Amino acid sequence: MLTISAKEMKDVLYELFKKYEFTESKANLLAEVFTQNTLYGVNSHGINRVPYFIETVKKGIVKVNEEAKKIEAFGNIERWDGNQGPGIINAVTCTNRAIALAKKDGMGLVALRNTNHWMRGGYYGWQAAKENCIAILFTNTQPNMPAWGGKESRIGNNPFVVSIPRKEGHIVLDMALSQFSFGKINNYKLKGEQLPYHGGWDEDHKLSKNPENILKTEQGLPIGYWKGSAFSIVLDMLATLLSAGNSTYKIGLKEHETAISQVYLCIYPEIFHDQDLQHTLINEIINYTHDVTPSEKGERTYYPGERAANAEKHNSKNGMKVNKEIWQKVLSLL
């Protein structure tokens, strides 16, 4: 492993994205998001995804010069078309729009179609929380999990994000509906380690902890088994219906994952004029969760986003641990 500072990573990535003809502002935003994702300890959707992202640019899957545009509005609900532009840039744009609608009307929803992978959904949760907005965000994906009771992949691991602003530290839940995101599974593969729990099925349709076997089949295990399967189906339905975009089924007909559907819902809690009460209620829940006997020595409980915030502080001070092969691959693309 190498230790890379946030400044060094952002500078390298900025030059890389400029090379592939992104404008200065877009190259800067992409470099910022990929670096921030790594800084928060999510290498799987940060630096590790950069080579994949460049590959999608080379293949024309990500259209460098396209941007998300509003196509319909229904009060504080809007539909946007991503025009297959960069998923990160489209996601930042639509999160900002949902925030603006929320601050105007108390709640705002933007449904986006025809976009690309947003990388780490949690980034946009933090983005909303920093603007003092609650956010509920989700996306569909290509089929990469079997619906419960079936063998072939028919549902997506549809990442789901909930964020709640808080003075002492924002609450940000960022989870795929598979037991492990495929980026996380690839992390274990890069480290030559087995998964700590079953993460999907192998070619014999047996549950496996072997990351290579699961990556080969692209058959992740839904969280909560049948419950995660149902959750995935419902999120796919909502993203597809609200955006009038592609479902996981339609996405799966394409050679590569693209033209996916997403939802950005923001709520502005200041409309209730009881910020002190909100603060008390949130901390009451956190304190109750923290004040518990650890299940194992050295263990403790965390609220969603707490580990990520701790990782950001540590990595800002000490630098980020990066897989040497991944970093060399990124440098070779310059």
Rank of each mutant, 00 (worst) to 15 (best):
K317Q: 15
A73I: 15
F272E: 12
S243E: 07
D274Q: 14
K189A: 12
N287Q: 14
T3Y: 10
H314V: 15
H198T: 05
S181E: 02
Q219D: 04
V234G: 09
L190F: 04
K329G: 08
D204V: 10
Y197N: 10
S163G: 03
V322Q: 00
P143M: 08
M1I: 02
F272D: 03
P294N: 12
I47V: 11
P86H: 13
S295E: 13
V322L: 03
W327I: 00
H170G: 00
R166C: 04
H290W: 12
K254S: 09
L29D: 04
Y124V: 06
K103P: 01
A308T: 03
A68F: 11
C133M: 07
V234L: 14
Y14K: 11
L109A: 00
L207C: 01
Q262K: 04
E24G: 07
F160T: 04
Y124E: 08
L2E: 00
W126I: 01
D11K: 13
K70S: 13
H170I: 02
A100G: 12
I285A: 13
L265G: 06
R79K: 15
G192E: 02
A135G: 05
N310M: 13
Y303P: 07
V330G: 01
T3A: 09
F182K: 09
L334N: 00
G199K: 02
S181A: 14
T23K: 01
G46D: 02
M119C: 09
Q84N: 14
G87A: 11
A311V: 12
A147T: 08
K184M: 10
L109F: 00
R300W: 06
K184D: 07
E8D: 11
P269Y: 04
I171G: 03
T141N: 11
H205L: 09
A100N: 13
N315G: 12
A68V: 12
G228F: 04
E32Y: 11
K59C: 02
K324I: 06
A91I: 08
T289V: 15
A100L: 14
N323R: 00
V57T: 05
C266D: 09
S247Q: 02
T217L: 01
Y288S: 14
Y40T: 02
N28V: 09
A68C: 13
P159L: 10
V162K: 10
D81P: 02
I155Y: 01
K103Y: 03
N114S: 09
